[in-house]
Amino acid sequence: MLTAAGSAIETGVAQPALLAKWRRRRRVERTAAVVLPLGVGAVCALLWQMGAAARTGGSVLLPTFTDFVGAVVRVLASVRFWHALWTSESALLLGFAIAVAAGIPLGLYVGRHRTVDGLVSGYLDIAVVTPTAVFMPLVIVVLGPTFWARVAVIAIFGLPFVVVPTRTGSATVPGALVSMTRSYCGSSGAVWREVVLPASVPAIFNGLRQGLAHALTGMVIIELTFLAVGIGRLIQDAQAKFDAASVFAVTFLIVAQGVAMMALLQRAQDGLSGQWRARS
């Protein structure tokens, strides 16, 4: 209650009501965050089921939602899927690791040195705008139809997208923080360790997310076009057998894997930020 003598907070009269209102709103927001996506998903699944059943009565080209769910369970239970996943993932992990190991230091360094930035920024722009798929035949010619060709393609797909955001993050570190660190006799190493690196963390993780998305794309494209192995081979085999439900299931699992990887990156970022905050 607001009175002439003082505010509501001073008198304490309205505090319980205010808190109760705030808690109610938070409860509604949390419930909505769970219920709304589930609701939208359920509606989509229903429309899918009805649409597919009405159109063909069980088309080989468009499976019903229940066929799709069955295929997901079947694929997850098959040894072949896990073997194919490992074949694809081993190349993805190595290729992405190479992109990260090269991309983060390169991006950080380029962002802090105008001369180097001038030298490489043109190439980076070209790498970002050029469809990376055009390099795949070259890689196959040089490395042959091998595991290392897949690793190289994945690294090439991911690298520019790791470098560019990292470069932006490193280049936009506030000059005042660098001056402050130097004013307390901080060495160049201290400037990098204590300021440039932590200040660039959000940009680095942005780069990791973009790089991972492109690396995943590279993995799928090369396995579907040039080197039929792993998950790509699984999809091709299902297509050849007109097993649309399995194609949908494997595609869904690849998407789910990408989403899970992004979530892991987000958790890593949150953990790293917390760790930085905990230090003194």
């Binding site: 923080l177 001056s179 402050m180 204590e194 200040a199 963390v201 905050r277």
Partner: peptide
């Protein structure tokens, strides 16, 4: 023997007040 106080504060945004104050000492 010199310490600077900056116009725009120059505080590390990810660090607590205590960590920010301790930063100069850490560098030294």
């Amino acid at each position: 023997e010199r310490a600077v106080v900056f116009q725009d504060f120059a505080l590390l945004p990810w660090a607590s007040s205590l960590d920010n104050v301790a930063f100069g000492l850490k560098l030294q």
